[in-house]
């Protein structure tokens, strides 16, 4: 590594650390000045975070939330992938169902939760349904767009070399669509997280969202901030996972 890139990296690193430090200091100062019911300082937040980690509250909530998240995401992925492929390759289905898909995508999902509550009540599965509804659209739409954008030339190649119909799916359509699907997964991971918190808000008093609600009812600003911080870190981690997945499967799409 030459001197120039070293200096460049140092600059980037110092900017990064500086930004984080500045944010932390601002948080601390504002939190100290502001009334506790409105905002709390970083030190109080971290202290409270430590407390809920130690007494197990956070762990239990995390576990509850992530069970629903995982189950919901698996369903969202399956529905999105198969639905997208079907919509892409079966014209009649596409014409019939696409308006609904787009209308539902445009509807803010939070607005549907009260109906689900009336329909399904409280509990594990209604929450899973909420997460599915939040998360499956990006997978569906990206998969559909991918599978529809296969160049006709590649399908000609498959046919000229006498590929059987089911092998055309296996050799051409699926590998071509996979990176698009992964773009959908990346977007879905974040939307599913929103769905998870929203489901906790409306459909139960446990999970991360439930913890957040009860903290706010107690005007425990430090705990609210601590949980929000946890959710943010989870969101960032999911984004990183999604990005890594997408890059891994899209490596041939470079250039």
């Amino acid at each position: 590594m030459n001197r120039r890139t070293t200096r460049h990296r140092l600059r980037v690193l110092s900017g990064y650390v500086g930004g984080v430090l500045l944010g932390a200091v601002l948080w601390q100062v504002i939190g100290t000045i502001a009334p506790h019911e409105v905002f709390d300082s970083l030190s109080d937040t971290l202290a409270r975070l430590w407390q809920i980690i130690l007494d197990g509250t956070l762990g239990t909530a995390l576990w509850t939330s992530f069970q629903t998240y995982l189950v919901g995401m698996v369903f969202a992925l399956i529905i999105g992938a198969f639905g997208g492929l079907l919509l892409a390759r079966r014209q009649l289905l596409r014409i019939a169902l696409e308006p609904y898909a787009i209308a539902l995508y445009a509807t803010p999902m939070v607005g549907i939760i009260p109906f689900l509550l009336a329909l399904l009540g409280f509990g594990f599965w209604p929450k899973v349904v909420v997460i599915i509804l939040f998360a499956f659209f990006p997978v569906l739409l990206n998969t559909q767009r991918g599978a529809q954008s296969i160049s006709p030339e590649l399908l000609d190649v498959a046919r000229v070399y006498r590929t059987r119909e089911r092998d055309i799916w296996r050799h051409v359509i699926l590998p071509y669509t996979l990176p698009f699907l992964m773009t959908g997964v990346r977007q879905s991971l974040a939307r599913g997280l929103v769905g998870m918190i929203a489901a906790d808000f409306f459909l139960s008093s446990d999970g991360l969202g439930g913890l957040l609600i009860t903290a706010s009812e107690r005007f425990d600003t430090a705990e609210m901030l601590a949980i929000t911080l946890v959710i943010t870190v989870i969101g960032l981690a999911l984004m990183a996972i999604g990005r890594a997945l997408e890059n891994h499967f899209a490596r041939w799409r470079v250039g």
């Binding site: 160049s151 030339e153 000609d156 190649v157 051409v172 590998p175 071509y176």
Partner: peptide, 12 residues
């Protein structure tokens, strides 16, 4: 066998 205008290679 056929050779294609845009090569028709499977990019993956």
């Amino acid at each position: 066998a056929m050779v294609f205008q845009h090569f028709g290679l499977f990019p993956w």
